[in-house]
């Protein structure tokens, strides 16, 4: 029961984010108005969609400062992502690697590449075809959370899985 409430809450958050920041939530292009109305709290997001990934699986994992190994406490998210990708074999994704603002620009681009690659390698090790998983690094250019404190930085050191082609599309 509590899980369902959480999901509904996340869907509302998603709707709000959809209006204000379509690019950063990792919403796939074209998932705007139509899917917003369909992803109501009652019906839930469309299976195999970005919303489905965000709400029911978790689209991102977080990293320690200047680190790129997948943290113990983040593995469950990638485990669920791998299971989800197996459930929807026609889905392809891009893993976006990001860094916090406490590094130099070019190093952070390379660091974001390491993080995206680490998340991809984890999925591949669980049996996902590497051709289904692209990577890109945004370095410190696209923080998820604004703010100059550890709370913000810890949410910006991340690898976000974004659906590029989805089930039924």
């Amino acid at each position: 029961m509590s899980l369902r409430i959480l999901s509904a809450f996340a869907a509302v958050l998603l709707l709000a984010a959809c209006e204000s920041a379509p690019s950063d939530t990792g919403m796939a292009a074209g998932s705007g108005g139509a899917s917003s109305s369909s992803s109501s709290a009652n019906q839930g997001p469309r299976p195999g969609s970005q919303e489905d990934l965000v709400v029911n699986v978790g689209d991102r994992v977080f990293f320690d400062f200047d680190q790129y190994s997948v943290r113990q406490d983040q593995r469950a998210v990638l485990d669920r992502q791998a299971a989800w990708l197996k459930k929807y074999p026609e889905v392809t994704v891009t893993v976006e690697g990001h860094a916090d603002e406490r590094g130099t620009r070019e190093y952070n681009i390379a660091l974001g590449n390491r993080r995206a690659t680490a998340a991809k390698n984890y999925l591949v090790a669980l049996g996902i075809n590497p051709n289904r998983v692209q990577t890109i690094s945004y370095g410190k250019e696209r923080p998820a959370v604004a703010g100059s404190n550890e709370q913000a930085w810890s949410q910006n050191r991340r690898a976000v899985t974004v659906v590029t082609a989805r089930a039924g599309s």
Partner: peptide, 30 residues
């Protein structure tokens, strides 16, 4: 808090760089 990216004047006597000041918790002010 954050200075980065030096570049030289052609005579090697002056530099430019950029400085970012911290944002508050709402992500503004920087």
């Amino acid at each position: 808090y954050l200075v980065e990216g030096p570049t030289w004047a052609p005579n090697g006597r002056v530099l430019m760089f950029f400085r970012q000041t911290p944002n508050d918790d709402r992500g503004t002010g920087g």
